[in-house]
Write a protein that binds this DNA or RNA. Sequence first.
DNA 1: TTTGCTTGGTTAATCGATTACCCAATAGTG
DNA 2: CACTATTGGGTAATCGATTAACCAAGCAAA
Lengths: 353, 353
Amino acid sequence: MPPSQRRKQKHSTSSRVSLAMVAAHAKVSTATASRIINGITNKASEQTIIQVKKAVKELGYRPASIGRALRCQESRMVGVLAASLANPTMSAMASSIERSLRDEGYIMSLCDTHEEADIQDEYLREMRSQLARAVVIIGAVQSELLSDYRDNGTTLLFVNRPAPNHNNSHYVGINNYQAGVDVANILLQNGKRHIGIIHASLEFTAAAERRRGLLDRLAEEGINPEDIPHAHTEGLNHLEVGYKSMQTLLEMPKRPDVIVCLSDMLAYGAYRLTQEMGLDIVEDFTFFGFDDNPLNPWIANWLNSVGVPASLYGPATVATLKAIWNQSPPTEPVYLPHQFRLNKEFFPLPPKK
Amino acid sequence: MPPSQRRKQKHSTSSRVSLAMVAAHAKVSTATASRIINGITNKASEQTIIQVKKAVKELGYRPASIGRALRCQESRMVGVLAASLANPTMSAMASSIERSLRDEGYIMSLCDTHEEADIQDEYLREMRSQLARAVVIIGAVQSELLSDYRDNGTTLLFVNRPAPNHNNSHYVGINNYQAGVDVANILLQNGKRHIGIIHASLEFTAAAERRRGLLDRLAEEGINPEDIPHAHTEGLNHLEVGYKSMQTLLEMPKRPDVIVCLSDMLAYGAYRLTQEMGLDIVEDFTFFGFDDNPLNPWIANWLNSVGVPASLYGPATVATLKAIWNQSPPTEPVYLPHQFRLNKEFFPLPPKK
DNA sequence: TTTGCTTGGTTAATCGATTACCCAATAGTG
DNA sequence: CACTATTGGGTAATCGATTAACCAAGCAAA
């Protein structure tokens, strides 16, 4: 019999191999087989262990996670709910989290809530029904179930955007307020005082905090928040909001030096308008964003931005989850160190330490 | 008792409500309850149906999908394996597929294989162990398990990148060969005959086919493939490959008019180099890419590209899955219509019909 | 000899939902 | 009246893995 055929027989005689088959093949009970597979050795002799391991290998057995999950009332799956996978910043975070989860033996199940409360609730319910070990929300929106969720045993962790209701829920991500303050510092150091702001909905905690930090710091230097032109357009697509807001901003009497966009996506939208109008991004003004999209250095070098490298999210998220499970949950938000990406042409002075 | 408290009691007296509780509450057997919940009405009286539905509502019951999955040997989950979530093209596809799956009552579980065969195999195994209804691979890599997978009952569908081994597996996505031909046509129509190519690994079927279509068409016009400069660098990160390959290309004696990058990400990498070197993308040359990343119109207007709008992927993918399940699988690859995004400055002549 | 402990297992219950099969009562038919 | 059919359920097996509870044999100590 050629090897390929033999192998086929081994693997697909019955399309799924169960623990019972392994036990039968090794001539032991399922209990013994289960224990050995799970590394509980104090209930089996050397001989038996070898037999079972041999059977596992020969049959190509892999435990059906669903059986274990049902019995243990807990799966190895971690649900990750992203607000918008079309946003490269969020998908990069998800990618990083996936890698870290896998390193710890967990499986990521990633969902896209499209920034809608109903969909988020639907997925929260589904995760519960799947007995997810935890739910990580990258960009939460306010929703009915979110408030209730602590009732359930499922661990809940907010990433990138703090919980809409601040009821001592866990958070991993940028310190939005401090980032706002730091951006203000950079602007001031480089003599930029004519500032405009583009923002989307301020209902999202992240945006509101960024703005607050920025304005607080500017106010300290005597720049009145009311003198800072704000542009905002309704809508969920940040690209379009940025584009339309930029129109508004350009129609204002006093054109700002620097336009601070509360997310990079907004800046992209605004940028498009400037290109269509033939404006010069050096002579006329420059852009500042938040999140530091990983593509920026490659194709959006004109954008100055502050953000946390996506690769930091995975390790921090998983470490926080493990801490929660170990009964030593963080009492404070876990702030990741944000970095600046500055175009030297506009910002020769780096941030102070 | 205030409403909020009453509700709390209802929902969390026991953290999970099982079918048995519903049945007890409605004073019927679990069999009856189960049938009613699943809409099998010919085994219950009007009265009973009302009772059970009332119990479901009062207890806030939602079937544990895990129980059903175990019993039925099949879950409502569809696994989606993406080669790289950091690539906005792929995450946009995933986002679209998620929405379409949800519309049909399925749950997407998205994973990131990081273009590695081992990780892809690991997830394939995991999906099997989770009894996934189907596995969709956005950007498959050649791996050991992929060949075997037909043995198992799980539906397998390749999206965006055809199966590495062409053994009659299902495919949804762009017609890579035809797209290559069409790109060649556009170039020829606009009098561009000095062409350079940047590519990453040609092991991936998509890239190889694109290139073949391009070269075949150019050869018809008497342009010898061997006269077309190719640049390629080892590596998995297309951004870096593009950057380094562009260096190679610029060192070549005869600088091309148009640089065709076999993916947009390669073009982004190449673009960065041109910016660092102060080259002019109008005077010196222009770029052509594949995939038409959704961000292109916003921040990469310099890039001409061909691709399928991401929003088409979800409906087509789900329709194909349903066709397979209905025993009427497509006998041919499902090609989605690709579109061009051309910068009029370089390509005044649109594609012929 | 009896008691107690260790080693090396087995049996059977359990998680939650589905469904084949059984059963009683009622209605319809020859 | 005897007979099927139909309606309206219930009982219990099942999916796969885990684990509490139990048990037998062997050995040591009292």
